[in-house]
Write a protein that binds this DNA or RNA. Structure first.
Length: 273
DNA sequence: CACGAGACCTGTTCGC
DNA sequence: TGCGAACAGGTCTCGT
């Protein structure tokens, strides 16, 4: 499910709160329940619960597709993988079908990690770099210049689509936003990264930033049953639109499989390598 | 280094 | 209608 914009939307919602739900900042974690053992990657569930008790939520952020809760003194990390989500509910609400981990807060609410497919994970660590250390740059960080991005591209002979989804190359893109970004940049997903010109590299970075910013502005995408997010799914230009006309040129959008992932592009706007 | 296949899981949708 | 296959926002590991 969640790629960078969806994770960003969740982090913002939990940090800023909404009309009905106040912010989580300042809340102590007073208890917890592990409902699916593998949902806690480390430390072991018993130690995780013992150690997290009475730590206070100081900061809520995002790095790549990870949600980052700065506690005191540890850091709580979540990766939602394909179908995870974080919900706030009353502490006495009945446990929903796919809750994998719940954390009781000081004010009577409960933070619930819900994940039908059980791929998502939580970590409690002293140093978040332990988990986040290998991630590539943040695509929206202004410190990532077109020149630097171009240098990184030229260092790889891989195809663009799998390279963009490699979190060590760039942190946060997934299958949807990679396809959308390549369409924005008018680049074929199978193009070899090292063969891009400087201006094509710059166009790609612009395309990436544009689709991510639009995704964030619309609070992410909601796809079928798995994730109730924002409205960005109504604005996809290629993802999930195989056979439908390209919104730019009218040619039918094509679907191929790259690295075992469905890949959507316009054969006219994104000419083959 | 790059790529493909398989594994981890459940739920929905598609095709016959 | 029913039922199995295909497919889904991600990542890890292993083999070539």
């Amino acid at each position: 499910m969640p790629e960078l914009p969806e994770v960003e939307s969740i982090a913002t919602r939990l940090r800023q709160g909404t009309h009905e739900q106040p912010s989580l900042l300042g809340q102590p974690i007073v208890a917890g329940q592990v409902l699916w053992e593998l949902a806690v990657a480390s430390p072991a569930p018993t130690e995780f619960l013992a150690r997290i008790r009475s730590q206070v939520i100081q900061q809520i952020g995002r790095r790549g597709k990870f949600l980052v809760f700065r506690l005191s003194p540890d850091t709580l990390l979540f990766h939602l993988r394909m179908s995870g989500d974080l919900l706030i509910e009353g502490r006495s609400a009945p446990l929903a079908a796919h809750h994998r981990l719940t954390l009781d807060l000081g004010d009577g609410r409960r933070l619930a990690f819900n994940d039908p497919r059980k791929f998502g994970r939580a970590w409690l660590v002293g140093d978040p770099q332990e988990i986040l250390g290998e991630l590539g740059p943040e695509p929206l960080d202004p410190a990532l210049t077109a020149e630097e991005f171009g240098r990184r591209l030229s260092a790889h002979r891989r195809q663009l689509k799998p390279l963009l989804m490699d979190q060590r190359f760039l942190a946060g893109l997934g299958n949807i936003y990679a396809d959308e970004a390549l369409h924005h940049a008018h680049l074929h997903p199978l193009t070899q990264a090292s063969r891009l010109s400087a201006s094509q590299g710059e166009r790609l970075l612009q395309g990436i930033r544009q689709v991510l910013q639009e995704g964030i502005r619309r609070n992410g995408a909601s796809i079928d049953w798995a994730y109730r997010g924002g409205e960005f799914q109504n604005y996809f230009r290629v993802y999930g639109r195989a056979g439908e006309p390209c919104l730019e040129c009218g040619a039918p959008i094509q679907r191929i499989v790259v690295g075992q992932r469905g890949t959507h592009f316009c054969p006219a706007c994104q000419p083959g390598p």
